[in-house]
Design a protein around this nucleic acid. Sequence first.
RNA 1: GCCCUCGUAGUUCAAUGGAUAGAACACCAGCCUUCUAAGCUGGUCAUGUAGGUUCGAUUCCUACCGAGGGUACCA
Length: 524
Amino acid sequence: MTTKDTIKQQIKQVLIKKYQLPNFEFAVNYPPSSTMGDYSVNVAMLLAKDLKKNPFELAKELAQELAIQKMWQKVVALEPGFINFYLAEKKLQENLKNILKEKEKFGNLKNVEKKKIMLEFISANPTGPLTLANGRGGFTGDVLANVLTLAGNKVEREYYVNDVGNQIKVLGHSVLKDEQAQYKGEYIDELKKEIKAIDPKQVGKEAAQIILKKYIQPVIKKAGIKFDKYFLESELHEGGSVEKMLTVLKKKDLVYEKDGAVWLKTTDKKSADDKDRVLIKSDGSKTYFLADIAYHFNKLHDRKFDEVINLWGADHHGYVARMKQAVALLGYPGQLEVLLMQMVRLIKDGQEFKMSKRAGVYVTLEELVDMVGLDVTRFFFLMHSNNKTMDFDLNLASEKSSKNPVFYVQYAHARICSILNKASDLEVSNVKIKDNLHLAERELLTALIKWPEIVEEVAENYEVHKICFYAIALSDKFHDFYENCRVIDENNLVNEFRLNLIQATWQTLKNVLKTLGVSAPEKM
RNA sequence: GCCCUCGUAGUUCAAUGGAUAGAACACCAGCCUUCUAAGCUGGUCAUGUAGGUUCGAUUCCUACCGAGGGUACCA
């Protein structure tokens, strides 16, 4: 259990004991400044209204009750009604030992409900190389899967490959360079040399396979993104799952015919969708939507995932309501979560540069990684909140790369390695327990114990960028410690407490960077 | 038109309804006979506009202005 959880529990007990309130909701936060405490709670201000009491007086009452717990150095009430907690040094030192004991498992949540979760991301059509925009969802999905795993879930990562349908036919025409060609680029020329078939559909099918193998999978590997499975849409068709899906929907009386097409009643009941959707077009061909429903039925029914999370680009936003409704109609309401990644805008020479695979105008993910490096690329994408449009300035990219905050974090790690190296040959003093912590020591220690709390938070709200900001904040505390506290003194004697402290910091930084898929260099 | 996301320092980004709105880059002034100066310390600079709800609003509600995306028998 994290310290945050412990605070919640302690307060809940007091609320039951004193006010018979078993289900009162409130928040545990970090105060704006460490001088104001390590944790802070707003419960008194929220409760004051219900109890018709003065919030500050109420906070004082509650603080007194809570201060009994040994883990607190003090619990104080602050205007206008915050209750702030200061961890006892003994408790902090216990936490330090715990980190050293847990090692690479520090950050894994224990005693939590285990869920079987499927995370589907990227799923870019195999009609061209992965672009820089695919990187955003790719890195986010990769790290989110890591976090959900740390949070105790069984997570599978999947890439859905749309390898049939109109786009693949268009790809075929493009390789053949006939009048229906649309996709352009060097890779099309390469494919033309390789493929001997002449039927557009067959050419498209072969081209999609080659693109997946040569232009997508190797780049995903290079980008440090892991997948458990590439799920081919064609398998759903060939195995009859799509046909069967239609039968199931018909049996449930969820479809009807109109204007020669077959429709799904997605506006049924309290749906967020605003119109019914076509499953079979009037020309007899199946829509991608029907195949998508079959795919989700496969995830939830056949493979029995408790929760399915899809990362989509914001341009697919109009598709969310119908997909969720379809899943609900099949009997799995609320088990599909769709996270929308906002667009990446590319700026070149001070102007927006519209990417288009069809026009052959784009920057590939591989080009970007080659240009600025993998660590920089990952950190840059990951530190942005999902629901904000990102600007990516190509001209500044390489210049900026040397100023990327990832180096700030990696430098902290490298500095620690350097001290640890030096200390390994030296004698260690026997200062086991430290009585009065230096402010920099204390702040570093309180930053360390937040790691499991960050994991818990991100597993809850999927805001992956918070990990980057945590990594920066932790490094900041370390650099401050480094300036103020020496691990090895002027007599070449190693301070044992500080040695333990930087070992724990090293371990935590390593765990955080591993979660982000960023390397932890020992030298810089 | 309707729907979604967003508008915060010169720039790129933070801030479950909380406390003095945080960083980084850029800019200015300092700090290396001591564990890596890719670091540290100090300084300048910000919530689009107008209302509302609240003890308290960058956050919630309404209107307006601005950016991007969606609005197909495309995905």
